[in-house]
Design a binder for these strands. Structure first.
Lengths: 244, 244
DNA sequence: CGGACAATTGAAGCCGGTCAAAACTGGTGG
DNA sequence: CCACCAGTTTTGACCGGCTTCAATTGTCCG
């Protein structure tokens, strides 16, 4: 149950999408990439824009978000190195549905639309991998969606801290030493709440010794406690269906 | 702006996914289908189940939902005739992320997993269509997600009424005579609120002559009014960026 | 050492959830 | 055809989680 929520849900399966592709088209694709450095805060593409290609994060972290009519950012997803960006819009032949901006300085490779589509047409394997990745993303997103719809802010915060811990964990680092490095505003916009509410909840978790905070980062001290707060399995007796 | 929210967002692009496919595999696929009648309320597949194939709705309507720990249903999407079900899980090679149940008596054709995958491997066109459909679904879902995260219940209700009006519109019927036929509970679970809240808002809309209700259906009387309630574009002056 | 921005705290009020009861509806059988 | 029952819808009352506005404190850099 719990594992089904957490496992794998911190990263999309786009990591190795280009790896080991054999068809001719994929070489063409890989050769056509241009790498560019984006500075922290820089926008990579904008909602409503016409997609001209896809992006691959070599290093760094970016946020995908949508601007609400009221001017708030709703963060939809955090991408980190290895992941692919902007291919939905190319595939769907639609404008970008969201905006992407760098959270940290990031190295990102751009592949032109045509090369991508050509590679796709010549490599059934690439096509299959993308299908699988998209379908997988979907089930993750459904989870996020349901959480948002049915959980309290406190529960969502706890849950997101667990996900973020995975996402900010360095390849070799022990899980005990993961610093979640994200501004209060961004974290609030991820969870879908106001900054102030977020701060108060963090304070509460801190007082309960569940986490440790500085203005720049958050670290989980008591994972079990956070899992309890996230209330991932509801609190009704696990195996007792109602009367009927 | 408005059109970008509404147009096309009432139905996924899976309608004609099987139409006009030429490759050998697709004939095999189509031949392998078995049609079955599901009665209102019947469950087609369950969250956590192993996907054994995909479903195609010949007639009727179904809801996709996730059961929350507290036992509530969060409805993720309504599917109507022509749409495809359950292919995400097959493609991702994962268990079903949600449950699907018939809202009305429905005729649904089942295609076994193997036939589907074989057709996919033999028909690049099918593969492309699925990619496009999935990518499109994504942008729709991002919209729904953002709405949920940032809008009030009242706004979400108004917005969903507009979408539902499209979905319940019969092929030839004028838009003025569309009856949205959905229980209060289902509608509440779609919007992500309590039945009682929903009822009170409907009452309010009714008093303002925006809609007309019976216990079994809802009809929009004043579309402009509902659009206003949905507040799709925020209310700040359209073209006046702040001071800076 | 300021200055600007981010984080925190305080206070007030409303939106929306929950519980409980009443009214209504559609379907059934006498 | 009517009375009845089960399930759904509607209404009422109450409360608590969150949002908002406003002011204070903290932090990072040039």
């Amino acid at each position: 149950m719990l594992s089904s929520y957490l496992s794998g849900s911190f990263r999309l399966k786009t990591d190795q999408i280009f790896e080991g592709l054999t068809a001719a088209g994929s070489e063409l694709l890989l050769g056509s990439g241009v790498t560019h450095l984006y500075r922290k805060g820089e926008i990579i593409f904008r909602e409503g824009g016409i997609p001209t290609g896809i992006y691959h994060i070599k290093s760094g972290k970016v946020k995908k978000y949508k601007l609400t009519p009221k001017g708030r950012e709703q963060i939809i997803y955090l991408c980190s190195d290895g992941e692919l960006l902007g291919y939905h819009a190319v595939l769907a032949e639609e404008h970008y549905p969201d905006t992407t901006a760098a959270l940290t300085n990031s190295e990102i490779t751009f592949f032109p639309r045509e090369s991508f589509l050509q590679a796709l047409s010549q490599s059934p394997e690439l096509s299959n991998r993308l299908l699988k990745a998209l379908a997988h993303e979907f089930s993750l997103f459904i989870n996020t969606f349901t959480n948002l719809a049915t959980k309290t802010v406190r529960e969502r915060l706890a849950f997101n801290l667990l996900l973020l811990e995975e996402k900010f964990r360095l390849a070799d680092a022990p899980i005990e030493a993961v610093d979640i490095h994200l501004s209060r505003t961004d974290l609030a916009n991820m969870i879908g709440t106001a900054k102030e509410t977020l701060v108060r909840l963090l304070k509460d978790f801190k007082q309960k010794k569940l986490i440790q905070t500085t203005s720049a980062s958050i670290r989980i001290l008591n994972r079990e406690g956070i899992i309890t707060e996230a209330n991932l399995m509801g609190q009704q007796p696990a195996a007792a269906p109602k009367n009927k």
